[in-house]
Amino acid sequence: MRPKPPKAKAVSKYFCGFILAAALAVALAAAALRAAPPAAKPSDTGDKFYIAQLRYGGGGDWYDNRASMPRLQERLAREFGVFPGAERKIVRLADDDLFSYPVIFMSGHGNVSFAPEEVARLRAYFERGGFLWASDDYGMAPSLRRELKKVLPGQDYVELPFSHPIYQAPYRFPSGLPKIHEHDGGPPRGYALFLGDRMVFFADINTDIGDGLEAPSIHNDPPEVQEQAFRMAVNIVYFALSQ
């Protein structure tokens, strides 16, 4: 190997020095930004009511149910009197604006995986009062259950009885979750996770409420089935708001 000429060595030395200095400057700036208190700034959501859809890792189809939340927001505006956002908001657990959405929704058929920093963020989100609603499109439940055990160690899904308030108001569901879509047979099940005595997570499994909120042309659900999905979705959001 040919030795480097002295001038090249010097240039390389200066270049390394420059890179080190730049890295140091970036690190110092980052540290300063972290140390500074967050200044007041406008929110992405403004004065509108949104339920954001969670974009998660692991390969699952997080992006499905494109129209579900905007349609639910419209419905909640009519029922609760909130000022609805017209579009779908998507949020990652690591995003700055996660805490602009007190309730977030997730759905999909595939694998869910949370990075370690996302696990910590989701726990902080729960602790501050956030609520996650997962509508299993058939297939997402096992991996989500595994990931949530990292977020709330030592806790596992609790199946809610039909007498639980989430099935009582504003709409009554005496038999628990309504069945929206049939895939593998079996009754619909509602599971929850709690932080203290506050519910922070609800999962509808074996029914697919999220699909039931989609535009009618997507799944061709009859209007009465769609209405059942909307009513249950209203109950879930109402429970998250009022507990």
């Binding site: 609760f80 009197g81 909130v82 009062g129 708001l241 009022s242």
Partner: peptide
């Protein structure tokens, strides 16, 4: 209040 984000946190 009405059911909304403000009432979620203030109510609690």
């Amino acid at each position: 209040d009405a059911p909304r984000w403000e009432s979620k946190f203030l109510g609690a």
